[in-house]
């Protein structure tokens, strides 16, 4: 069956990604050189940046799948949006926890109005709204449509949020805004980051495929149970 194949492929991807992340952890602890300016804390960056990247990737999928759902009303598009949104919520949480931890040491404060941090916080709440809307509307079809609208409107707002937060920073420059990426990045650091990015992306895509096929299977199952119930009573 097709959904079984999707599930197997998803699981394989997850395991490959987990292997890459384990390798990344080994590299972070034993192999990669310590960044001169920030010291050891800079290593959290190998978790933080891929976390952010997958969050944005997830949001992209949610927005596209939601637009497809509104357009075609195809259950598969909605299932894809839900699966990606759940991943986004998790990876967004990773980003939101690791960011301030790094910031506490690097910048001397847990929270700073760093553009990407602020943007992710607002995105994370948009994901939250996505699930709250879905779950709280009596008619499931309407709930799905509302959630899709929330995702689309949320993604349209990203440029404006971005402008507002970069503006804010220019008004109030943070303590020392260090950008670890850029031409100064040590080749070994770049390798570690790439391994981590690959690992996170594979885990996310794997979970996404896995979750997507489960979602479809669960819906089919619920429908079948309802039909059996109706048949038994008729």
């Amino acid at each position: 069956m097709e959904s079984t194949r999707v599930r197997t492929a998803g699981l394989l991807l997850v395991w490959a990604g987990v292997a890459a992340i384990l390798l990344m952890h080994w590299m972070v602890v034993f192999w990669v050189p310590t960044e001169a300016a920030q010291g050891v804390v800079q290593r959290i960056f190998y978790v933080h940046v891929p976390g952010a990247w997958t969050t944005f990737l997830a949001f992209g999928i949610v927005a596209l799948a939601s637009a497809a759902y509104l357009w075609l009303e195809d259950e598969r598009a909605d299932a894809a949006a839900v699966a990606a949104a759940e991943g986004g919520l998790i990876f967004g949480a990773i980003m939101l926890i690791s960011g301030p931890l790094w910031g506490r040491v690097a910048w001397g404060t847990y929270w700073t109005w760093e553009p990407r941090l602020t943007l992710t916080l607002l995105l994370w709440f948009t994901y939250l709204g996505y699930f709250l809307v879905r779950g709280s509307v009596a008619d499931p079809r309407r709930g799905k449509r509302f959630a899709a609208v929330v995702a689309i409107v949320g993604s349209l707002n990203i440029p404006l949020i971005h402008v507002s937060v970069s503006w804010f920073r220019s008004l109030h420059p943070g303590p020392v805004v260090i950008k670890p990426e850029g031409p100064t990045l040590h080749p070994d650091m770049l390798t570690t980051l790439l391994v981590s990015l690959a690992g996170f992306t594979m885990v996310f895509l794997g979970l996404f495929a896995f979750r997507y096929s489960i979602e479809l299977a669960a819906r089919r199952q619920a429908r079948a149970e309802d039909a059996a119930l109706a048949g038994g009573l008729a």
């Binding site: 008619d139 499931p140 079809r141 819906r219 619920a222 429908r223 149970e225 309802d226 109706a230």
Partner: peptide, 10 residues
């Protein structure tokens, strides 16, 4: 017509 898994009209 379906309301989620529930078939209202079959």
């Amino acid at each position: 017509c379906d309301y989620g898994p529930v078939r209202a009209l079959a």
